[in-house]
């Protein structure tokens, strides 16, 4: 005989596994600090590549416009400005990334805890 309560619980579990469950399980494989650090590292790498492209383009324009005065170009000044912008970008993206990925991890953990609670109820019914 089919138990309605059991079907309802299994349906909830199956819906979760089909949707957010896959990503939540992957997220839950890490400790929170490791997950946030790894995601921030990927983000910072991406931002660094983007800034290298922007600074490269900007410096190329400066260089081409001052082709005959390249010895008089203040390379230290440009280097310092680029370094400061890069550092500020790193700090900003790390703050945003930490807030975002911490929140994502907490939500995933809460959903997995609900999933485990439903599993326990299902085990008691069986």
């Amino acid at each position: 005989m089919i138990k309605k309560e059991k079907v309802k619980l299994m349906t909830h579990l199956a819906i979760y596994e089909q949707n957010e469950g896959k990503e939540d399980m992957k997220t839950n494989e890490y400790y929170k600090s490791n997950y946030v650090s790894f995601q921030n590292f990927k983000r910072r790498l991406g931002v660094t590549i983007a800034l290298i492209l922007i600074f490269g383009g900007h410096f190329s324009i400066v260089f081409m416009n001052n082709l005959y005065e390249m010895e008089q170009l203040d390379y230290m000044k440009y280097g310092s400005v680029y370094l400061i912008i890069w550092l500020v970008a790193m700090v900003v993206y790390t703050i945003i990334g930490t807030m975002k990925y911490s929140k994502k991890y907490e939500k995933a953990k809460a959903r997995i805890d609900d999933y485990k609670a439903i599993l326990n109820r299902l085990n008691k019914l069986s």
Binding site: V7, M10, T11, I15
Partner: peptide, 17 residues
């Protein structure tokens, strides 16, 4: 709306929620 498929020892379930 979700369509899920699961089984237990006795039945296969095709559920539309």
């Amino acid at each position: 709306a979700e369509k899920v498929v699961f089984e237990d020892d006795d039945y296969y379930y095709y559920v539309k929620a």
